[in-house]
């Protein structure tokens, strides 16, 4: 690896004298000077004040606004949020009230006032779909907040301070990665403590326990990339304490990749909840959710696929919008695209 291995000095000495005087050609070389009016001089390093000043986020927002992928996904997410918070705005049937279901309607198709037909229990498919939004979204949003807090803090500290904390985190991450999320969740969810108290929150806790190492890894990487940046060293040389430098400079600069992954993860958490519910280990039957509805509809899938397909469609579109959002954010926040 060392430059010493090469006898560069010997080589250079032999060639040195020739180059010192510069080269003079025997050919006639024309001396061309461009007319000044065609090549006007500009002051050295002039500040360009034409564009309006933009922060990183403002700049990303400007890019995002023009991206169809972002506009579509943002509108969809907005719509899903409204449905989740105010389901009563979208249907006058309250499916949580058992009296709205009638076995007379079992498996019936669409008719006036019931655009998507009925389930086996004779409940309105459309109303259940609308009311199921909240559970799925809650799992997605709160699990994401949980993994961001747990994984983000662990990852940031491990990346910034390194040492034993980092070593422990790395091993812990390996252990959790050795246990795929669904497998781990299956084991937890069938523990008595969880099985007997199933609710949205037990599902969230389970998914956080198995979801945080991924965010921790991403955060750790981003923090390591920034912790030795000159602007961090400069702040420390100004007298800022090491911890404050982490909070004020390193973390804000490490957010972009974490946000991208969080957005995509939100989608995968919703899928994970649905999968657990589908396996009968997720949300309790009392909670109305897309996963439960799909699971219930499964036995009739060949006779009456619509009952399965509608909640599946709602689920897929919601997940798709979060994944598309993450994709659009990734492009807009790409640091490579920003340097000029």
């Amino acid at each position: 690896m060392s430059e010493n291995l090469t006898p560069e000095n010997d080589l250079s000495k032999s060639a040195k004298p020739a180059a010192r005087q510069g080269k003079v050609s025997s050919r006639v070389i024309e001396h061309f000077v461009a007319p000044l009016e065609e090549t006007p001089l500009v002051a050295v390093d002039k500040v360009d004040m034409t564009a309006a000043p933009l922060s990183l986020w403002a700049d990303a927002w400007k890019n995002l606004r023009k991206q169809p992928l972002f506009i579509i996904s943002a509108l969809l997410i907005l719509a899903v949020l409204v449905v989740a918070i105010f389901p009563q705005w979208f249907t006058h049937i309250d499916p949580t009230d058992q009296s709205t279901c009638s076995l007379n309607d079992s498996g019936e198709g669409a008719r006036s006032g019931h655009p998507l037909g009925f389930t086996l229990q004779g409940c309105d498919v459309y109303a259940r779909m609308i009311y199921g939004t909240r559970a799925s979204l809650m799992v997605g949003v709160f699990t994401t907040i949980g993994v961001l807090l747990l994984g983000g803090i662990m990852g940031a500290l491990a990346g910034y301070y390194g040492g034993w904390l980092d070593a422990i985190l790395a091993r812990l991450g390996d252990i959790f990665f050795a246990l795929p999320m669904i497998l781990g969740a299956i084991i937890i969810m069938q523990l008595p403590a969880f099985r007997d108290n199933r609710s949205v929150w037990t599902v969230i806790v389970t998914l956080v326990v198995f979801g945080w190492p991924q965010i921790a890894r991403i955060t750790r990487g981003a923090v390591i990339e920034n912790r030795n940046a000159d602007f961090v060293t400069a702040s420390k040389a100004l007298g800022l304490s090491s911890f404050k430098a982490l909070v004020k400079h390193v973390i804000p600069n490490s957010m972009a990749p974490v946000i991208v992954v969080a957005s995509i993860s939100l989608g995968t958490f919703i899928v994970a909840e649905a999968t657990l519910s589908f396996l009968g280990l997720g949300l309790p039957q009392s909670v109305m959710s897309w996963g439960n509805d799909i699971s219930d509809a499964q036995p009739q899938v060949r006779n009456n696929p619509a009952v399965l397909l509608w909640p599946a469609l709602a689920l897929s579109i919601t997940v798709l919008s979060f994944i598309m959002l993450g994709d659009a954010l990734r492009d807009a926040l790409d640091p490579k695209a920003r340097k000029r």
């Binding site: 080269k23 050609s25 070389i29 024309e30 001396h31 461009a34 065609e38 090549t39």
Partner: peptide, 30 residues
């Protein structure tokens, strides 16, 4: 030092070219 001929470019245009030493000792373009 290395070339017989030097071509000076500025903002995508050639502003001056000619024998290396002459350009160095007697530059014409601002």
């Amino acid at each position: 030092e290395r070339a017989e001929k030097v071509v000076v470019m500025y903002k995508g245009q050639v502003v001056e070219s000619g024998p290396a030493l002459e350009i160095l000792r007697n530059p014409q373009h601002p």
